[in-house]
Simulated scan of single mutants.
Amino acid sequence: MNVNRVSLAAAGVLSALLLGLAGPVDEAHARSYTAVVKCAKVRISDNNAVDHVEGTGRGNTRPKAVTAAKKNANDKVGRGYRAKHCDVKSIR
């Protein structure tokens, strides 16, 4: 009887561990995407494009990765400029 209780308890613990570790995984939270965008660097004062800038971003969905990449590009351009007309170069 004591052996049956131990093996039943061990089976319960093992089942709980397996379900916790190998249970269903939500695809949106398990995957990470990296996006690269290329944007025109536009001078705000006269709205002229003067150069290009690339940005990289990560997210758990493709749109979030692209948004993060656009923000990264805009953060790189500096004061008096902004990143516009961004094209997605890659998403991995």
Rank of each mutant, 00 (worst) to 15 (best):
G20N: 07
V50N: 01
G20D: 06
R43V: 06
S7H: 12
A40Q: 11
T34A: 12
S15F: 09
A10K: 13
A69I: 00
A11Y: 15
G12M: 14
A49P: 06
M1L: 05
M1Y: 10
N2T: 11
A40H: 07
E27P: 15
A68Y: 05
G59M: 07
G12A: 15
A68C: 08
D46Y: 02
D75T: 05
N2M: 13
Y33C: 00
V66T: 01
S90N: 02
N47K: 07
Y33V: 07
A35C: 07
L18H: 15
T61E: 03
K38E: 14
T56S: 12
K41F: 07
G55F: 09
G59H: 01
A83S: 09
A30P: 02
D46H: 15
G12H: 08
V36H: 03
N2K: 12
T67Q: 08
V3I: 11
G59A: 05
L17R: 06
D51F: 01
A68L: 10
R92K: 10
L17T: 13
D51S: 11
N4W: 11
T67M: 02
M1T: 10
L8K: 12
T56V: 14
N47S: 13
V36W: 02
R62W: 03
L18P: 03
R5Y: 03
N74R: 03
A35G: 09
A10Y: 02
R82T: 12
K84N: 11
Y33R: 00
R31P: 01
K89A: 11
V42H: 06
L19G: 15
L21I: 08
A22N: 11
